[in-house]
């Protein structure tokens, strides 16, 4: 019998490992496929009609997987001009606001993306010839949901810190 805390940690480790692995596999396949396409055309005078579309879909997956990986360490592009002029004791409060905002926005996008995927499923949209598009597109809601979840965790953590800071003095 494993206690829930440890199960949770283990799950998270497996999750991040899967994330990284998927990202690396995507990039490797992308380089390989593009090179294969050049080889086939120049040496064997043949090709693979879906190569271009597949490569572009991989770009989308890399975009989302990369964004998910970036959210792990809260490492997204930001401007952060005001915080350096704010008094230090305000920092945790602004952090809490920003984390909550990001989590809510990403959750909203994830929800809308889920509706989009559902619609594509309903209309039997296809990619790569006859492959169901919704499978490929699922990365949108899933990716944004994970980012939302991560920022929600940051929010909880920073809120905890903030409350402790208020209670301490």
């Amino acid at each position: 019998m494993i206690e829930p805390q440890r199960l949770f940690r283990r799950l998270r480790r497996v999750g991040t490992l899967a994330e990284d692995a998927l990202l690396i596999v995507m990039l490797t396949v992308m380089i390989g496929l593009a090179a294969l396409q050049i080889f086939l055309r120049n040496i064997l005078d043949t090709g693979f009609v879906w190569a271009d579309e597949l490569l572009r879909i991989q770009v989308l997956w890399i975009a989302l997987l990369g964004a998910v990986a970036a959210s792990r360490d809260d490492n997204h592009v930001n401007i952060d001009l005001l915080t350096r002029f704010l008094p230090g004791r305000w920092q945790p409060a602004t952090k809490v606001i920003v984390d909550l905002f990001t989590a809510v926005v990403c959750a909203l996008v994830a929800w809308q993306a889920a509706r989009f995927v559902q619609m594509e499923h309903a209309y039997d949209s296809t990619v790569l010839g006859n492959f169901p598009a919704w499978i490929v597109q699922s990365i949108l809601p899933v990716g944004f949901a994970i980012v939302a979840y991560r920022y929600f965790l940051f929010f909880c953590k920073n809120l905890g810190k903030l409350l402790k800071g208020v209670a301490a003095p």
Binding site: D45, G47, W50, D52, E53, G129
Partner: peptide, 17 residues
Amino acid sequence: EGDSNTYAIMEGLGLSP
């Protein structure tokens, strides 16, 4: 890109699209 019908026809003619 993605025009699979034309691609199939070219291949049917033994050409290299």
